[in-house]
Amino acid sequence: MTVNPKGPETRWKPNVTVAACIEREGRFLLVHEHTQQGLRYNQPAGHLEPGETLLEAVCREVREETAWQVEPQALLGIYLTHGAATQYLRFCFVCRPLEDLGTPLDDGIVAADWFSYEQILALRPLHRTPALLAGIEDFRRGQRHPLELLHDLAAT
């Protein structure tokens, strides 16, 4: 059993994030972004905001970080990653790119571009999280879960 370092009266909770695995013609859409560790590559991703569904959150994050409008098609996987001071529960979705809206990118995003699998492997030392490559590899293996697995009970 793990002991909560903040004491038994404080319940620990992971940060819930969403990410998008977006593939087009054999290339994947990634963002190049400023982080506390310097410039890093990641899938379009971010935190679930209050009142959002997971699907709304992933569409918003992709739009803000890449200017692309997407359609979630499947749940790729759920990944638990361990940061320096917290853990992240990441819901990664397979999304179909619909349209480049040409809108400005979020603060901290240097660029959004399409990369081959080989390029992504070469950039591995600059990945923001191991969940980036785990998701790409799950995608390439054909892993997909129906969106019907998700239930937003607040919306009912």
Results as ranks from 00 to 15, higher is better:
residue 12 W to G: 10
residue 13 K to T: 11
residue 14 P to M: 07
residue 16 V to A: 07
residue 18 V to H: 06
residue 19 A to R: 03
residue 20 A to F: 07
residue 21 C to G: 05
residue 23 E to H: 05
residue 26 G to C: 07
residue 28 F to G: 03
residue 29 L to W: 00
residue 29 L to M: 08
residue 29 L to K: 00
residue 30 L to Y: 06
residue 31 V to T: 10
residue 32 H to P: 00
residue 35 T to D: 12
residue 35 T to E: 13
residue 36 Q to P: 02
residue 36 Q to R: 14
residue 38 G to Q: 12
residue 40 R to N: 10
residue 41 Y to T: 06
residue 45 A to I: 00
residue 45 A to V: 05
residue 46 G to H: 08
residue 48 L to I: 08
residue 49 E to W: 14
residue 49 E to A: 13
residue 49 E to H: 11
residue 51 G to K: 14
residue 57 A to N: 04
residue 58 V to Y: 04
residue 58 V to P: 02
residue 58 V to N: 00
residue 59 C to D: 10
residue 59 C to V: 10
residue 60 R to L: 12
residue 60 R to A: 15
residue 62 V to I: 10
residue 62 V to N: 02
residue 62 V to L: 02
residue 63 R to H: 12
residue 64 E to Y: 07
residue 67 A to W: 04
residue 67 A to V: 09
residue 68 W to N: 03
residue 68 W to V: 04
residue 70 V to I: 11
residue 72 P to Q: 06
residue 74 A to K: 02
residue 75 L to Q: 11
residue 75 L to T: 04
residue 75 L to S: 09
residue 76 L to T: 08
residue 79 Y to G: 04
residue 81 T to I: 07
residue 82 H to R: 03
residue 82 H to D: 14
residue 82 H to P: 00
residue 83 G to A: 14
residue 84 A to K: 08
residue 85 A to V: 12
residue 86 T to Y: 08
residue 87 Q to T: 14
residue 88 Y to V: 10
residue 89 L to F: 08
residue 89 L to G: 05
residue 91 F to N: 10
residue 91 F to L: 07
residue 91 F to V: 07
residue 92 C to L: 08
residue 93 F to D: 05
residue 97 P to T: 00
residue 97 P to Q: 08
residue 97 P to A: 08
residue 100 D to A: 10
residue 101 L to R: 15
residue 101 L to P: 00
residue 102 G to S: 13
residue 102 G to N: 08
residue 103 T to G: 00
residue 105 L to Q: 07
residue 106 D to W: 07
residue 109 I to W: 01
residue 109 I to N: 02
residue 114 W to G: 04
residue 115 F to H: 13
residue 115 F to S: 06
residue 118 E to M: 06
residue 119 Q to W: 09
residue 119 Q to A: 15
residue 120 I to F: 14
residue 126 L to Q: 13
residue 128 R to Y: 09
residue 129 T to N: 06
residue 129 T to R: 10
residue 129 T to A: 13
residue 129 T to F: 04
residue 131 A to K: 01
residue 132 L to V: 08
residue 133 L to F: 10
residue 134 A to R: 13
residue 135 G to H: 08
residue 136 I to V: 12
residue 137 E to G: 03
residue 137 E to S: 07
residue 141 R to S: 11
residue 141 R to L: 14
residue 141 R to M: 09
residue 144 R to H: 14
residue 144 R to Y: 13
residue 145 H to K: 04
residue 145 H to V: 00
residue 145 H to F: 15
residue 148 E to D: 15
residue 149 L to S: 05
